Amino acid sequence: MDAELVDWELAVTTARRLVRPGPQITREQAGEVVAELRRLAVDAERHVEDYTHLAPAGAITPINVVDRPEWVRSNVAGLRVLTTPLLGKLSDQQRGTFSTAVGRRVTGIQLGTALAYLASKVLGQYEVFLPPEEYLAGPDGSATPDAVGRLSLVAPNIAHAEATMGVVPRDFRMWVCLHEQTHRTQFTAVPWLRSHLESEITAFIEATDLDPDVLADRVRSAVAAVRGAVFDRGADSPSVVEALQTPAQRAVLDRLQAIMTLLEGHADQVMDAVGPRVVPTVADIRSKFEGRRDGGSPLDRFIRRLLGLDLKLQQYRQGGAFVRAVVAEAGVGGFNTVWESPTTLPTRAELADPTAWMQRVLGSRPSISA
């Protein structure tokens, strides 16, 4: 069997070498952070289910509290699963050209460098795509092959963020757990969501233009666009993620972005809706966290733009506004119609116009205020 086109082990090694150390706290303090995150994650699950009226089905997914190196390892494992179809396509069509132009070691270093940056930023995530051996549940380590994913909380990043912002640690930890548990509930309570997301990613891969000359032109154009957007602070310039797309990919990307905007916005809305009951200082946390999202040096903004992270900030805001508008008009029950099937998901245009989605999907149905 031919070697893979990405040196995954080198990506892990590079990221772990470059990632910044976490906050300087004692082993006892670190243990307290980990223990409380585990407790709060369990509590948050109940609060999310009570508010959303979404009940997880099937196997219970595990909760991991990790450090930065473990986050890197886990995400490389997930990326390896997610990109296997694309790399297989590259392997079949033009392995020699790709290996010459980029090289699996160079690609591994590039990936590791990006992950090293992200490893100090991410507070938590719900990992949807994992290799089979990663699906473990509970302290007994029993395998759950039908599990959907895994919730991971990055303890040093949470501890660093709460100290930097000067917020109440227990409240901030619960606030983060509410957001991530909402993502967990989305995928465990909506059986078709993971397979639909996977099919859209497959469609995106099928539309990928593998011509190295075309790709090189797009990279040059994308980097130029990003440089101008960051240092000129242009709001409408594309990220590399957007600028590299073919027309066919953009159509799929529109659907993928609509899904991710909905998921992020829903999690943001839930954490703020539940927050006042279980997070006494939620208003202070939200105010300070929004400032943290918007901040950063020119270099930080450049990296965010290069990796497409500015897109995620837009997703939180637009998606949150959509969910809040629908819940205000039709209640949580009316909003939950969004989870009935792929056809009830909002389009990108509808995310900016919640009334259009309600007219198309809810139609003459009575408003459900529950």
Rank of each mutant, 00 (worst) to 15 (best):
R317A: 11
L313T: 08
Q249I: 01
A251W: 02
T261E: 11
D268K: 13
G308Q: 05
V241L: 06
Q359E: 07
L306S: 03
R255G: 04
Q314L: 14
S364T: 15
G265S: 10
R324G: 06
D310L: 01
P366K: 07
F322D: 00
V282T: 03
E264A: 12
F302S: 09
D236P: 06
G320Y: 07
V270W: 04
P276Y: 01
E290H: 14
F302L: 15
A248N: 03
A328N: 07
V274P: 04
R293Q: 15
R286V: 15
G331N: 03
T281L: 11
V323Y: 07
A225Y: 04
P346T: 12
Q359P: 01
V279S: 05
I259W: 05
H266Y: 14
V332A: 06
L311S: 03
S239L: 02
A352K: 03
R304S: 11
T343D: 08
R293Y: 10
L362T: 00
G275R: 15
S221K: 15
A267T: 08
Q314E: 14
S367C: 12
P298D: 06
A352R: 03
R233Q: 08
D300Q: 15
G331V: 08
M260R: 14
L253A: 07
G234I: 11
P366H: 08
P238S: 02
W339P: 10
W339V: 09
V240C: 09
L256Q: 03
F322A: 01
G265M: 13
D236G: 12
K288R: 15
R292E: 00
W339L: 10
V282I: 09
R250S: 10
E242G: 00
G319C: 07
A248M: 05
D232E: 12
V230W: 04
Q249G: 00
R304C: 11
Y316D: 08
D236F: 13
P346F: 13
Q249F: 00
P366S: 08
L313P: 03
L263N: 02
A328E: 14
H266I: 10
V226L: 03
A258V: 08
Q245M: 13
L253Q: 06
P280A: 05
A251L: 13
K288I: 11
D294H: 08
R305Y: 13
V241M: 03
G331Y: 05
W357Q: 02
R317W: 05
Y316S: 09
R304W: 10
D254W: 08
G296K: 09
K288T: 13
L309H: 03
